[in-house]
């Protein structure tokens, strides 16, 4: 089975966010980048588990500059066989999807996995766009995945519950929590990652349909009002008369 996992490069969750150039650019100075958790913990690890039982290969794909190579190497250290970096600074989700589609269209992948969303732009759009561009079925927000021959069985979140579906491969799927448990790369993996192939591919032509005009930090909450533990009725009163929440 040939699996492609799309990995995005995102600021570590504990990063303090700041903007420059009149609030038009995310300030990357001193920011530690990691693989987007959904791509790493769920998509990549489940892909590796499937490969371990069914055979085949796992390729990771990233669209970005050379500065994201440390994150790509981490994906290889966790166990991916090889990596592709498309040399492009993607401007929006559609541009990412077009780049992935241009690369993947004639490679015969049985399964293409993306994360549910990136934790920086929180779009959750690449998967559906990619499926459309490749004319493949798309199962979103998968929490369990098994493959039997050429059929994938996927449990995924839908409004009001979960659904189990069957779909023949090839398939595009977005990974949500539950698919697998995070893996920490071991020393052998880290050593092996140094010599695994990382191929840089030139960008295909793509369109940018949206762009960020400006950013703004979310306002913090004003000071917390403390209520004595012995008088919770005061809290009820404040929630009613002040916060108008009851």
């Amino acid at each position: 089975m040939k699996i492609l996992v799309c990995i995005s490069n995102v600021p570590d969750t504990t990063t303090k966010i700041a903007f420059t150039n009149n609030d038009t650019t995310f300030n990357t100075a001193g920011v530690q980048f990691v693989i987007n958790p959904y791509d790493e913990w769920y998509a990549l690890v489940r892909a590796l588990e499937l490969k371990e039982t069914l055979g085949g290969s796992v390729t990771i794909l990233h669209i970005g500059g050379a500065d994201s190579e440390p994150t790509i190497r981490k994906g290889l250290a966790i166990g991916a066989d090889d990596a592709i970096r498309i040399e492009s600074n993607p401007s929006d989700a559609f541009a990412v999807a077009e780049q992935v589609a241009a690369y993947a269209k004639d490679k015969g992948f049985d399964l293409i996995m993306v994360g549910k969303e990136t934790i920086n732009y929180n779009g959750g759009m690449v998967g559906g766009m990619l499926a459309e561009l490749l004319n493949l079925p798309f199962v979103s927000m998968a929490t369990k995945l098994d493959v039997n021959g050429t059929i994938a069985t996927v449990e995924h979140d839908v409004d009001g519950g979960t659904e189990v579906v069957e779909c023949p491969l090839p398939l595009v799927l977005s990974a949500n929590k539950g698919m697998a448990e995070a893996r920490i790369p071991n020393m052998r993996g880290i050593m092996a990652a140094r010599t695994k192939p990382l191929t840089v591919v030139p960008a295909a032509v793509s369109n940018t349909l949206t762009n960020v005009v400006s950013y703004k930090l979310a306002p913090g909450r004003t000071d917390c009002k403390f209520i004595d533990a012995s008088t919770p009725e005061k809290l009820v009163e404040l929630l009613h008369s002040e916060a108008k929440a009851l």
């Binding site: 349909l209 949206t210 762009n211 005009v213 400006s214 950013y215 703004k216 979310a218």
Partner: peptide
């Protein structure tokens, strides 16, 4: 943070 996006 929040971001203002332009749809082009």
């Amino acid at each position: 943070a929040t971001a203002v996006y332009s749809l082009n």
